[in-house]
Design a protein around this nucleic acid. Structure first.
Lengths: 242, 242
DNA sequence: TAGTGGTCTAGACCACCTG
DNA sequence: AGGTGGTCTAGACCACTAG
């Protein structure tokens, strides 16, 4: 029961990725595509606005819609919210490379003030605290600390934390999709403790990303900090006006 | 001739900021607000989706719309694309603090391969190269290098670079709004040269933001790198699913 | 069941760009 | 003038949440 505009968006994205049109080339007009896909212009526009937001096309008033030049790169791009879902680390990268995790710590802790505020629970309520080192092609690239709402997900099998995708597990056990992700990006230097976990020198640059993830019913279930090696990650951001 | 949904979005944002409702409180339903503002639900929804994207409300299927808790902070938040326009440094911060610029360099240079590709012009065409140190409350906080398309904006008065807003000047002289901003965020360390310009020690952490800015007709006019003191800036990002 | 947001239709008119 | 995207209407039905 996927929405029609999502289907259309994905269909056209697929066409773009399979080089149906050249980069910079004009694609058919809204009116044409609406007929092709058997929907009204409004529905088609929703699909195209998403494609623009995701950086696949450029829409220019009075001119038409054009394929954006592809951007390839040597480092990993963190999800910036231009995908149609929040993937989480495992799902994000497992098709590009070998990803794995090393579980450093997993315990129940009472939520401190900050964690409680972010997860919208009471201070002192027990939450999962999880620290993992994430590896890409067997090289440690980031440390992630997560505080997870025990009310949403009472038990987390170690197997999931070491091998699987936590987000996938949560979507599966709750039966709800992930709907919202708010994050703050900061720059910092690696200190002794985190550097040791990644086998790098202290003082190397870090991209720190902290954020809260919510389910579609508005429940906050994950508050996390990830400490990324700045030489391994970039974050891309598209902004489209009005 | 502002669009109705933009007006409504701003009106409701203003109501939220003036505490018409408590944080977490339910605001009137789409159907109610549509009547109040004299538009159909579709138009009102466009306004509310923007407010959600900008982080002011949360929309929950079957429940309603709720005011999001305010987020205040001690450092400056760089524009992440949740505002309704790209402001540029001057317009972004001049209402929160005293902003100023120190012009380090302004000359015409032939575009190298990278600059030419980003500005969608031919290699070797002359472009403005501008290096400025930006200050907040008289403290230098970032260095910005800009390459500006001379075809779009032939002359840039020094006065604008030292005192005014370049984006404001460009919107004014071209008569076009800024429509698109694509950026990449990286972490790095300050080297000797940039550190000296900011009067800080080399080796301090930096948030590097590079990007291209376009006008509403699709013309790329600015390719820039900004080197931000990581202790002074954060970047906030909201992602809302589907 | 009643109320909420999510999606979709079949039109219409406006604003912008090009020949 | 003709084609393009941008906005808007007045409905309709669906999916989710609550009491």
């Amino acid at each position: 029961m996927t929405a029609r505009y999502i289907q259309i968006k994905n269909a056209i994205k697929k066409q773009i990725l399979s080089n149906t049109w050249q980069v910079g080339e004009k694609i058919p007009s809204e009116r044409e595509l609406a007929v092709t896909h058997g929907v009204t212009r409004v529905t088609l526009q929703k699909a195209m606005h998403m494609l623009e937001q995701e950086g696949f096309i450029e829409r220019i008033h009075g001119k038409g819609m054009f394929v954006t030049r592809a951007i390839e790169d040597d480092v990993f791009m963190l999800n910036d919210g231009t995908s149609d879902s929040v993937q989480g680390f495992s799902r994000e990268f497992r098709e590009q490379a070998k990803v794995s995790s090393r579980l450093v710590c997993h315990q129940l802790l009472p939520a401190d003030k900050t964690v409680a505020r972010q997860l919208e629970i009471n201070e002192g309520e027990p939450v999962h605290f999880i620290r993992r080192v994430r590896l890409i092609d067997d090289e440690p690239v980031l440390v992630e600390d997560s505080w997870i709402n025990r009310g949403v997900i009472p038990v987390i099998p170690s197997r999931i934390l070491e091998e699987g995708s936590l987000y996938e597990y949560i979507e599966h056990t709750t039966g709800k999709k992930i709907k919202f992700y708010s994050s703050v990006i900061e720059g910092d230097l690696f200190g002794e403790e985190l550097a040791a976990l990644l086998s790098i020198q202290p003082g190397r640059p870090m991209l720190k990303v902290s954020g809260v993830t919510k389910l579609e019913d508005g429940t906050a279930f994950n508050y996390s900090f990830s400490y990324n090696r700045a030489d391994k990650f970039k974050i891309k951001n598209n902004w489209v006006g009005k």
